[in-house]
Write a protein that binds this DNA or RNA. Structure first.
Length: 357
DNA sequence: GATGCGTGGCA
DNA sequence: TTGCCAAGCAT
């Protein structure tokens, strides 16, 4: 076995000294814990994930414990992390691992990638970190660090750019140490080779870095431009009946799938808030609603659009609401709102109701 | 290949 | 205020 290239040795030495101690990092990591952490970390910062990871592992310490869980409880534990499909797919995948693999998380990347929610990156991460397999886990950090290190001009958020980076890095690590190689580059990307204001003076790879040598660190990595996000005006209705309030559950395969909300929708051009609310409640719930005073205005940015949401009280509901465009409809005691998983805006409305009653 | 999918932090 | 970014996946 030949010794690794000098830059790889420098990287691994730096990682041994400066690598972060994280709850899911162990000398012999639990594959399930690595899996959970990798799903939570998709598009999400380490600092955000840490408390969620601890709570999750306390409640669901094993694949089997998770497989037996109720989806609503899973979503409650996930509430606030975003990209809620991850939670439902993690649950589905845990059930599959129990049914097909006897509760043992697969070690082979191709096998892992067949499970819902596990793509090329996550499969490589689990296989390399938990099982020592030789797989490159090309995440956003690695793309940025490697694009700078090798001076790659191809946009890194395209398949072509990722193929190019993978070819350059493939096999650079000593056999069996892909997990350390991957995590070293992730930590370097998070701590030193950051998107803005990289700390090149502290970088162990500076002597070999092409972008640094050519003064192009600030120009790399290149990315495709993003589309501008639209802004919508939205209305939601709060109907009280005694100590209860009406909630609707969002369809499983749409945004915020499986979560509960105060029913409503987009205000169409030329429509006022009250008209939009009446139309939405007729379409979604099959009832005639009588809108009342505004309870609050909430601004929020989702992944691909922004909203200004007006919460209106609903004074009267004619008929019994049915889930025409929702997964379910329920009159929920205000005191039990916390046990219904919600997105951020609806949780803000719910908290306002609880504090004022 | 392009688009849909949350939230929080930062300039 | 707005845009950009952060350990991606599914379609």
């Amino acid at each position: 076995m030949s010794s690794p290239a000098p830059w790889v040795q420098a990287l691994l030495d730096w990682y041994a000294r400066q690598g972060r101690a994280l709850p899911w990092r162990r000398a012999h990591p639990d594959p399930y814990a690595v899996w959970v952490s990798e799903i939570m970390l998709q598009q999400t910062r380490v600092e955000t994930v840490e408390p969620y990871f601890r709570r999750w592992m306390d409640r669901f310490p094993t694949v089997r414990a998770l497989a037996q869980a109720d989806e609503q409880e899973v979503l409650r534990l996930w509430e606030g992390l975003g990209y809620y499909r991850r939670a439902r797919q993690l649950l589905a995948a845990a059930r599959e691992v129990v049914a097909r693999y006897g509760g043992q998380v697969p070690a082979d990347p191709a096998e892992l990638a067949r499970l819902p929610g596990i793509g090329p990156y996550t499969a490589a991460a689990i296989a390399s970190i938990a099982y020592g397999r030789d797989a490159l886990a090309l995440d956003g950090n690695l793309r940025r660090v490697l694009a700078r290190f090798f001076g790659v001009e191809t946009p890194v958020d395209t398949p072509a750019g990722q193929r190019e980076l993978a070819a350059l890095a493939q096999g650079a690590w000593p056999a069996g140490r892909a997990g350390d190689f991957n995590q070293a580059l992730m930590d370097l990307g998070a701590l030193v080779c950051t998107p803005r204001a990289p700390r090149c003076e502290d970088c162990p790879l500076r002597p070999w870095c092409r972008a640094y040598a050519e003064g192009r660190v600030a120009d790399l990595p290149r990315k495709r431009g993003r589309a501008r996000v639209p802004h919508h005006t939205v209305v939601a209705g709060v109907a009280r009946r005694g100590e209860t309030v009406l909630l609707a559950q969002r369809p499983a395969h749409k945004m915020l799938g499986g979560l509960w909300e105060f029913p409503g929708g987009k205000v169409e051009p030329g429509e006022d808030l009250a008209a939009a609310l009446r139309r939405e409640w007729r379409e979604e719930l099959g009832v005639d609603a009588e809108p009342g005073p505004e309870l609050g205005v909430f601004r929020h940015a989702y992944s691909h659009f922004r909203i200004t949401l007006h919460a209106l009280s609903v004074l009267r509901v004619h008929g019994e609401p049915r889930p025409l465009q929702a997964a379910a409809v329920r009159w929920v005691p205000v005191s039990e709102l916390a046990s219904y998983p919600m997105g951020k805006v609806d949780r803000a409305i719910a908290r306002q109701l609880q504090s004022s009653s």
